[in-house]
Design a protein around this nucleic acid. Structure first.
Lengths: 193, 193
DNA sequence: AATATCACATTACGATCATAATGCAATAAG
DNA sequence: CTTATTGCATTATGATCGTAATGTGATATT
């Protein structure tokens, strides 16, 4: 045994954190394992003592980042309310920090092209976030609350992607602000419940 | 001259069409030039007589697919109305045919990581589509119409991405249907104009 | 104190990456 | 009819891809 007891676990965690950032920054297929390992302070060869394949690492990253996002959203909703979470999600600072931001906004089209187990992991955590959002829509009946929550999620994800894609800073800001207003309209209690 | 007069132009067009499909199917960074050229019935070496780089090809594909989408949307809106275009965009057949579908839904996070000229080309065409949608929102004042149009666009793009990512077919259908309802709510004439 | 373990480094595999130099053959231009 | 042009194929570049075999040295175990 060359290293102390908890060493392997902390190294594995370091790899997934570095990889999660690089994947969101540059895209899953644009990042090589060598770059991830180097950024984690290791070399190529150590990778396969921690993961069985790149697909395995991607799955781990998707699960961890989505779990962390769910926890953060749940806590912030109970502490500050839905609108505060919304404004934070659609903020310039979130737009400008892809590497630590929403995995859906950074990777959603790529996730749809990943292996079945990754898509399955994504689906479960997507449903969990929708559940949390739907519980914040009291005026809606249960089915409608879930449909509306999904639309709200799609709207903020799409808006963040658009705000990152356009090259006009003023337009990018307008996209974020318009999205906040639109999501609040969707969340509002329907005229006839 | 080994080939007839219009040959080079039609070959170039063939390359961009094949590339546009492969990029949307598999992602820009996941597709190699050799695979594109082979699918176009050519070999590696012919690429650089048509394009100066892969970035150049990507720009051409983004421009062509977005221009075609704008024309299709404009025509279908004037022929069948906004709601029909919406229902077609959020249809299972569009979800299941990435390669010929909306470039934004297939590539938006990747576009935000592309070169400045590609992001600039995207921005101009995004604004053009928003203009067309905004003109279909008569109850809104001009600024609000554009904000709402952007939110509607973000909502349909995000929803299509989600419908493609989840591995539960029933959920995927629900996402599409819920998105239609939500977009129509956003498009509805605001209570106080 | 001796030994076995194992998390890493080193090195390398064949494949593919974007890019490019060179060769060629058929057609357009003369 | 000759010749110059050029759109493509062939071939090759060094780099990087995901994956894997092998080496090694410090620690946990004995």
């Amino acid at each position: 045994m060359r290293y102390e007891k908890g060493h392997k676990e902390s190294t594995r965690q370091q790899i997934t954190e570095v990889a999660s950032k690089q994947f969101r920054d540059q895209g899953v297929s644009a990042v090589g394992l060598a770059a991830i390992m180097a950024d984690a302070g290791l070399t190529n060869g150590a990778f396969y003592t921690h993961f069985s394949s790149k697909n395995d690492l991607v799955r781990e990253c998707v699960e961890q980042t989505l779990d962390a996002q769910l926890q953060a959203i749940s806590r912030n909703i109970s502490e500050h309310g839905l609108e505060a979470v919304l404004r934070q999600y659609l903020s310039p600072s979130h737009r400008d920090d892809r590497g630590h931001g929403c995995p859906s906004a950074a990777l959603l089209p790529e996730i749809s092209r990943q292996s079945p187990e990754i898509r399955h992991a994504y689906t479960a955590r997507f449903n969990a976030v929708i559940e949390v959002i739907a519980q914040q829509l009291p005026g809606h009946d249960p089915d409608d609350a879930h449909q509306t929550a999904r639309a709200m999620f799609a709207l903020v994800v799409g808006s963040l992607q658009l705000a990152r894609a356009v090259d006009d800073p003023a337009l990018s800001d307008d996209i974020l602000e318009g999205a906040i207003a639109a999501v609040l309209r969707l969340a509002a209690r329907p005229s006839k419940a």
